[in-house]
Simulated scan of single mutants.
Amino acid sequence: MSFQAALTSENIQLTIPNDLAGSRLDAALAKLLPDYSRSRISSWIKDGGVLCNGKITTPKDKLIGGETVQVQIQESQENLAFEPETMDLDIVFEDDTVLVLNKPAGLVVHPAAGNWTGTLLNGLLAHCPELAQVPRAGIVHRLDKDTSGLMVVAKTLPAQLHLVNQLQNRTVKRIYRAVADGVVPFDGKIETLIGRDPHNRLKMAVVKFGGKEAITHVKVLERYHAHSYIECELETGRTHQIRVHMKEARHPLAGDPVYGNPRHVCSQPVKDAVKGLARQALHAYRLRFIHPKSGEEVAFETPIPADMYHLLSVLRLESGLHSSLSHEVEWQNQFEDDEDDWNEDDYDVQVVYVKD
Rank of each mutant, 00 (worst) to 15 (best):
Q350D: 12
D26H: 09
K212C: 03
E191V: 01
D337Q: 15
V153S: 03
E130Q: 15
P198M: 01
L287S: 02
T8L: 14
E78G: 00
D197I: 03
Y353S: 15
L32W: 00
C266G: 09
V184Y: 01
L124S: 10
I290W: 01
A306F: 11
E336H: 13
R316Y: 11
N115C: 01
I73F: 02
E318T: 06
P257M: 11
G149A: 09
L315F: 09
P111H: 03
T97S: 14
D341R: 14
H291M: 05
C52R: 07
Q133C: 01
I16G: 08
H245S: 07
L7Q: 12
S324D: 15
A5E: 12
V349R: 15
V184Q: 12
T8Y: 07
N79P: 00
E248G: 11
L20K: 07
G237P: 06
L221V: 15
F186C: 14
T57R: 08
R243M: 12
E222G: 11
Q334G: 10
A281M: 08
A132Y: 00
L312W: 04
I230N: 05
L282A: 10
P257I: 07
Q4T: 12
P252L: 06
L150G: 05
A299Q: 14
I16L: 13
K173M: 10
Q168S: 11
M87Q: 15
T117Y: 03
P252A: 08
A21T: 07
I45V: 10
I230Q: 08
L221T: 13
K247G: 06
S319K: 13
A284Q: 05
H162Y: 11
R286S: 10
R174D: 05
L311P: 10
R223W: 02
G54V: 00
D345S: 14
A5M: 08
F93A: 05
Q160Y: 05
K103V: 05
G54C: 01
E94F: 04
L311V: 08
R223H: 04
V92G: 03
M87H: 06
L20R: 12
